[in-house]
Amino acid sequence: MATPNTPLWEVFIRSRNGLAHKHVGSLHAADATLALQAARDIYTRRGEGLSIWVVPSSAITASDPADKGMMFEPAESKIYRHPTFYEVPEEVGHM
């Protein structure tokens, strides 16, 4: 008999250095409690984190890689959004 499928979860961990939660991988678990426990065992065996989020993979809406040109091009063409676009006289020093 084929083994029945168990739901998939995405795991996010916040490390001790004060950074935001970061995606580390995924796992299978029947519910959120088991997902948290499994995430602890699979992704934090060496003190990698102080906080874990688990999110059902089905709850994630992702952008389509095929649209990446349309999605991200507007940011590429606006160099005036970067500090280096502006000229400040050298005598003024670091700004």
Binding site: A2, T3, N5, T6, L8, G25, S26, L27, I42
Partner: peptide, 16 residues
């Protein structure tokens, strides 16, 4: 488990 998760991103299920 990390590796099964990587394989699953290609469309196969863990159980399969």
């Amino acid at each position: 488990l990390y590796l099964y998760a990587a394989a699953e991103t290609l469309g196969a299920s863990r159980e399969e």
